[in-house]
Structure formats: C-alpha cells, structure tokens
C-alpha cells in the first residue's frame, strides 16, 4: 500500500495534493475527506484552533494505523493524510485524507476507520483560540 503522511504548519493545498495523485485503473474508488475548523465551539464564536502534537509519537502511531488499515482492508492501494499543526483559522482545513481502493465500500470503510482511530490514539491536541475582542 502506498502511504504518504505529512504533519504541516502551512495550509493544506488540496488542489496540489489532488493534482499530485497518481491515477490508476486499479482503483475505482478514491475517497477524499477534508476536516474543516468550525467557527463555533459550543456557543462561542472562535478565531480558530491551535493544534499541538507530540510529533515523533504521532508519526509512529499514524504509521501503525496505516499498517492496521492495510491488514484490515488489503485491497486498499493508497492512503495519503495531511494534518495541520499550529494555528488553523476557522473555515480552513485541519485534516485531509485520501484513500484509494478498487471498490467504494472498502474505501469508505477504511477512510472512516482511519479517522475514527486517529482520534483515539494519535497524540494531537486542540487548543481553542477565542475571538479577540474588537
């Protein structure tokens, strides 16, 4: 399985990532997911979220998840995941995931499982940045 992981402090360039995808007649399903920072946290309007990571462990845990995903869905041929670190403004993407597989069922299932699992084990934390008074 092809795998690509990036933890980045610069904006996620989805168009560039998509353009860089290698099309393959083997994969009938390419799932792309963007996680976007919401402008509200509960009742409060927020400026954005600052993401903190224990980077060495985050990278290791992502690779373990990719291993497990490959074992659970052997047909998945490619996974690419980009996660922002540092401040991400409301409305901007903090997460981008692409999973390619021969059929949509396994592509959707693997993508959903990866994101759910990431939220359980990858050491990344959110710090809400409130809207500054004008």
């Amino acid at each position: 399985m092809i795998r690509f992981l990036q933890l980045t402090r610069t904006p996620i360039e989805e168009a560039a990532l998509t353009a860089g995808a290698s099309a393959s007649a083997e994969f009938g399903a390419v799932i792309r997911f963007s996680g976007v920072v919401r402008g509200r946290e509960g009742e409060a309007v927020i400026r954005g979220i600052r993401y903190e990571a224990f980077e060495a462990m985050a990278t290791h845990q992502f690779q373990k998840l990719f291993d497990e995903m490959s074992a659970r869905w052997p047909a998945v041929g490619s996974v690419r995941l980009v996660h922002r670190l540092g401040f991400v403004a409301a409305g901007d993407a903090s997460l981008w995931v692409e999973v390619s597989a021969p059929h949509r069922g396994e592509a959707f299932a693997a993508c959903q499982w990866l994101i759910d699992s990431m939220k359980q084990v990858v050491p990344i934390w959110k710090h809400v940045e409130p809207l500054e008074p004008s």
Binding site: G35, F54, M57, A58, H83, I115, K119, V121, P123, K126
Partner: peptide
C-alpha cells in the same frame, strides 16, 4: 515517559 490527556486530532 510522556503523560497527556485524551487526544483530539482532526
């Protein structure tokens, strides 16, 4: 050793 609260990526 590292100690931390529940993780919240995404």
């Amino acid at each position: 050793v590292s100690l931390f609260p529940p993780v919240q990526g995404g």
